[in-house]
Structure formats: structure tokens, C-alpha cells
Amino acid sequence: MRGGRSSPLRLGGPVSLAVAADAVRTCAGVWRGGRYAACPYGAVLPPEARRDQCERCAALDRSYSVAADTKADDPRPYAVYLAWFGPGLLKVGITAAERGAARLLEQAAVCFTFLGEGPLMTARRTEAILGAALGVPDRVASQAKRAARHALPDAGARAAELRALHASVTDQLPDTLRPRPCEIVDHAGLFGLAPTQLPPPVGQVSALPPGSALTGTLVAAAGPDLYVRTAEPDGPGRLLLLDTRLARGWPLHRPPEDAPQQVPTVDLVPPKQPRDAPQPLF
């Protein structure tokens, strides 16, 4: 939760969280002066919301936001990057240079490279020009990112696709953008997606309502998504996908060791086989 305590997670380590039966999920407020100011409306958020702000606080944040193009006077240098999420799933974007790879980790980019660095408006124009010229979007849908994680090509193939795109745009960068060499940073191992393929989860947590509890082992983590192998007393457990944005705004605590799994989930349909793939006879 923004402005609250944080507990580090590690791959292969435990995940344990619960929402008390009488808990209330509240809006995180707005970011001002380097910190979050409490929501002036005292807004309560529904359990299924994937944003930790009410509509009015979110609108206040957008009114002075680089991402929403409503803040054009940021004096910091900005970096333009190419991010790779899966075969054919690439995007061009910008981030404050001082943040390094933080924005790419937040977006769950499997690998990325920087293109150049310069003033905010130069970086923003470069993003728009390259996106239009290459047909590369400025965002990739969460569902597409998630589907790609279970069938990733090897690191060499990932780097080759990014390297080719980087080479094709270097002569299109404006003079006011300082070019950066192609240096591929791969996050697959950090996310738990390599060296073995991540199996598809059987279900996705749909909400964390009051009285819910989830315990298990962290198998992988990419951006806001946690892949948790649940702790079951009489079996290997299920692999569930938890979007941690569902947890923001709740006063979380650790459930008792013997607490049952109590989270609503939706079943996830496995990816369809390609049409030309041989079908099983039985």
C-alpha cells in the first residue's frame, strides 16, 4: 500500500496476507510534495478495484502528470526506451533518467534497451514519432503480457528482436536527444521466468474482500503480478495469479498458520493450440 509498510518478497519464499473481516479499503490520496496526502474525501474503494485511488484523487494526479501530458515543465532529463514483453510485443516509452530501470520493472518488461536521453518534450516527441513510424504502441495490455510469459523464446532471440529494432531507429532520433548504445537488460531470471518456463496459473484472484486470506510460495513476480503456489494441507497446491493492485489500500496482516485459503478466484483457460498443431486422438 502506498505510504504504508512494505515486506520484501523473494522467489521461492513465502507469501502470506489476509484482510480482516471488519477491514475497510481506503483511497491512497494524491502525491504532493514528495509524499502522499490523505484523500480529502475519505473515499472507500471496492475490493475488486485495481487502482488505489478514488476517481477524484486520480483526476487530481492526472492534472499534473507527465504520463497524462499535463506536466510539460519538468526540468529533469528523460530517457527513451524500447521494451520487450514477448514475441512481437514491444513498446516505446519514456522515463525520468534518474529512475534507471525502475519503470521497466514496474511494467514487467522481460527485457529492454535505452535509445537516448534528453529534455522531456524532446523525449515525448521521439516517443510519438517512433511509435507512429514503426507501428509500436506506447502501452501493451496486461493480458497480452501475461499470456506471453508462458512461452518465451530464449534470451538470444529476445535480444535479437530488440537489437534489430534499436538499429532501425537510430537514424531517426532528433539531434536534441543524446543517443545511447544498445545494451540489452534481461529481467527473465529476476522475474522467475527463466531458466525454466513458467507454467500457466489455473486461476486468478479476482478480489481481496474482508475475511480473505492467501498463503503459499512465490513462484514468479513480474510487475504487479505475483504467481503464488498455494499452501494446501493435502496436496501440491494450485498456482494462482495475484494482481497486487488488488491489495493496495487494505490494512493487511499475516493470517494464522492454520488459516484456510479464502480468496475468490476465476478459472483461467489454457492458451489454445495453434490450428496447424496435431490434435490428440483421445
Rank of each mutant, 00 (worst) to 15 (best):
R2E: 05
P8V: 14
L9M: 01
G13E: 05
V19C: 10
A23T: 11
R25E: 06
C27S: 04
A28E: 13
R32M: 09
L45G: 05
P47M: 02
D61A: 15
R62M: 00
R62D: 05
S63P: 11
S63K: 10
S65N: 00
D69F: 07
A79F: 00
A83T: 03
P87N: 02
G88M: 13
V92L: 10
T95C: 07
A96L: 11
A96E: 15
A97C: 13
G100N: 14
L104S: 08
L104E: 08
E117M: 09
G118L: 10
L120V: 05
R124I: 10
I129Q: 11
P137H: 03
A141M: 13
S142Q: 12
K145N: 02
K145D: 01
A160I: 01
L162T: 06
L165R: 06
D171A: 13
T176I: 09
P179A: 13
P181M: 07
F191I: 06
L198V: 03
P201Y: 08
V202N: 05
V205E: 04
P209N: 14
P210N: 07
P210L: 08
G211I: 14
S212W: 04
A220K: 06
L226V: 07
R229C: 00
R229H: 04
A231N: 04
P233L: 09
P233R: 09
R245I: 11
W250T: 01
H253M: 08
E257A: 15
P264F: 12
D267L: 03
L268R: 01
P270G: 00
R275E: 13
D276V: 03
P278K: 13
